Structures are given as C-alpha cells and as structure tokens.
Simulated assay, not measured.
Amino acid sequence: MHHRLAKFVFNLWPPFLGAGIRVGRIAPDWRQVEVRLRLGLSNRNYVGVHYGGSLYSMTDPFFMLMTLKNLGKDYIVWDKAGSIDYIKPGRGTVTARFQLDEAWLQAARSATADGSKHLPQLTVDITDQQGELVARVNKTLYIRRKQER
C-alpha cells in the first residue's frame, strides 16, 4: 500500500478514529511515522488525562508495518509482545515518532538469513507538546524469513 493511502486509511480506521488517534506522517520509504493523539472526551480517563489504552493503541501496529514494508514479502513479521511504562499524565496533544534505520534492518536480515526467528525489541517514546516524556512503549517483534518453496 502506498504511504499516502495508508495514512488516509489509518485516519479513517474506526479504532483510531474513535480514540482520536491521527497519523500525521508516513515517510515514503516507511522508515518514519508520526502519530498524534489529542485529548478529548473519547480518550480521557476518570481523572481527565489520556486513557492509557489509547496511548498504547496509538503505537500498536507501526513498528510491525514499517518492518514488513522494508523487509518485503519474503519475511513474516508479527507483533509478539508489548508493554508501556507511564511516566507522567498526558494532557493536550501527545506524539509518538517511530523510526527504523538501515543498520537495524540489515541486522534483522542477517539474523534471519538462515531461517531463524529474530525477536528484536524496539522502543518509542510518547511526548507531550513541551517535548516531555509521557510514556515509553516497548515492542517485541517476531521476524522470520519465509522458507522457499
């Protein structure tokens, strides 16, 4: 899927739309993604700050999709595990910026060249409008090169 079409689809996807999650940017090479979440009635918790589930949801598919788009159809890529560490209450608009570099992708290719599975851990920070850390999300991916038929 083209990066512009993907952005359009994500921004209309019901779980994101309902939570107020907006994809601001997907780089043409799928190595950078920026996602924002504005505080609203649909994503605030009892004490009036961002609901933790919405904070985690804004990070859910992106490392997996970015990796899959960069490694290609010869690879199986899944989200295996994830955790979130809440640092401070989220107010206003929060942002998560995802990035993959060529060295990381090359390491994944090397680790799976013989058909072995690779379980890399990636981290994305969620920051507020002042650039202060609101939450840190850790994701573990499952990557394996498909066997030739």
Rank of each mutant, 00 (worst) to 15 (best):
M1P: 06
M1G: 15
H2K: 13
H2Q: 09
L5I: 12
F8N: 08
V9T: 06
N11P: 09
L12T: 04
W13V: 05
W13C: 04
W13S: 01
L17I: 03
L17Q: 12
L17S: 10
L17R: 12
G18N: 05
A19C: 04
G20Q: 02
I21W: 01
R22N: 10
V23Q: 00
V23S: 02
R25Y: 15
I26R: 05
R36T: 14
R36W: 11
R38G: 13
N43C: 09
R44S: 07
R44G: 05
Y46T: 09
G48D: 11
V49E: 06
H50N: 14
Y51V: 04
G53A: 11
G53K: 07
S57Q: 08
M58S: 09
M58K: 04
T59A: 13
P61A: 06
F62N: 00
M64H: 04
M64Y: 03
L65S: 04
T67H: 07
L68T: 02
N70I: 03
D74N: 13
Y75R: 04
I76V: 14
V77N: 06
A81R: 15
G82W: 01
S83D: 13
I84K: 09
I84R: 11
I84Q: 11
D85H: 11
I87F: 01
I87N: 03
K88S: 01
G90W: 00
R91S: 12
R91C: 03
R91L: 13
G92P: 08
V94D: 00
L100W: 02
D101A: 08
A103N: 10
A103G: 05
L105G: 08
L105T: 11
Q106I: 08
A107E: 14
A107V: 01
A107S: 12
A108F: 07
R109Y: 08
R109S: 10
A111C: 07
A111W: 02
T112C: 14
D114W: 03
G115M: 02
H118A: 09
H118C: 11
Q121P: 00
L122T: 01
L122Q: 06
V124A: 04
I126P: 00
I126Y: 08
T127M: 11
Q130T: 12
G131R: 10
E132H: 11
E132V: 02
V134Y: 00
A135R: 05
V137T: 10
N138Y: 06
N138I: 06
K139T: 00
Y142C: 07
I143M: 07
R145W: 03
E148A: 15
E148D: 13
